[in-house]
């Protein structure tokens, strides 16, 4: 009987321990930490480890090569180009998406029936997969069977080749990505805008500020933290661009839209299955993304402090 009493009291102290907020927090975090550990941290360490080996996907003929794979990257023009294409895409996509999302959020911030309907409409593409969106855009922009080239042709304009033109292909992919994702940015910015105290706008109005001045001098400073979050997440997402390129141009024409992730994928998962080299390129990309995210985060924090 005594033994059972001891076990009951142990149980109680166990629950009491985990009921304390500072301990319970770990319980709430545990699922995310476990997922992060198994699907992010361990694969990251594994990728770094593989990058020091000459290894193929079948794990045959494995050889330790030290930093050779990293050295090879700097002599591989296609790999370097793929990094530049990724940066180019990011420069096109991230600012456009943040601007379009913020402007849409500002325009639809008042809760009217039309605005609520518009918000839902703008969010619909977010629900579609990138692959589906890619296929839709490929068909819409196809110079032979596409609706958009057809309409342009009807107005007597020449038919642009969009995804088939080396100059137009990447901007076309960026536009498609903005269309697909700006609903997320809009929703985040909308929440931030709606949280701004109306008294700030009233004061600005009393001081004679017009709508434009209110937007730049009241709205923007107030939403800087959300803006920073959107810039950073978009930046990371853009640097990892893959699906939409894979579906629309497959990296063409002439590798002009081949992104870093696509190059990593083609090196590692198609003949000659160079897993070691692909891991080295992935590690380099990881470092670039980390530097960009940290610097953008620092810049936005600095800006936030400046504006407050």
């Amino acid at each position: 009987m005594e033994e059972i009493d001891t076990s009951v009291s142990k149980k109680r102290s166990f629950f009491r321990f985990w009921n304390q907020p500072k301990h319970a927090a770990y319980l709430f975090m545990a699922p995310s930490i476990i997922i992060l550990l198994f699907f992010m941290v361990i694969p990251l360490i594994g990728t770094l480890g593989l990058s020091f080996f000459n290894i193929n996907i079948f794990f045959t003929g494995t050889k330790f090569v030290g930093l050779d794979n990293f050295v090879q990257f700097f002599h591989d023009q296609r790999a370097i180009n793929s990094m530049w294409h990724t940066v180019y895409f990011t420069l096109l996509e991230t600012p456009t998406q943040v601007i379009v999302g913020t402007v849409a959020a500002a325009a639809l911030s008042r809760t009217t029936l039309f605005n609520r309907f518009s918000r839902s409409v703008f969010y619909v593409p977010v629900i579609c997969s990138l692959t589906t969106s890619g296929i839709i855009f490929s068909m819409l922009l196809d110079p032979n069977i596409g609706w958009i080239p057809y309409v342009l042709h009807q107005f007597g304009m020449s038919t642009p080749q969009f995804f088939r033109d080396a100059t137009l292909a990447m901007p076309s992919i960026a536009v498609m990505t903005v269309w697909k994702n700006f609903g997320v940015t809009m929703t985040i910015m909308l929440t931030a805008i709606q949280a701004i105290s109306p008294s700030l706008y009233e004061s600005a109005e009393m001081d004679g500020a017009n709508k434009k001045q209110q937007f730049f001098h009241v709205t923007i400073p107030q939403i800087i933290p959300s803006l920073g979050f959107c810039v950073m997440t978009n930046l990371i997402g853009s640097m990892q661009v893959f699906d939409q390129i894979y579906v629309t141009t497959a990296g063409g024409p002439e590798f002009k839209t081949e992104s870093a992730v696509q190059y990593i994928y083609s090196r590692g998962f198609s003949a000659p299955y160079q897993l070691g080299y692909a891991s080295a390129v992935a590690t380099i990309l990881f470092v670039i993304i980390a530097i960009l995210s940290v610097s953008s985060n620092l810049y936005m924090s600095h800006k936030e402090k400046q504006m407050r």
Partner: peptide, 21 residues
């Protein structure tokens, strides 16, 4: 020839694209 698949994907197809362009 174990290199054929690699040559086709990474050399010949991109060359065709360049010729056609």
């Amino acid at each position: 020839n174990k290199n054929m698949s690699n040559i086709t994907t990474n050399v010949i197809n991109p060359s065709i694209e360049k010729v056609l362009a």
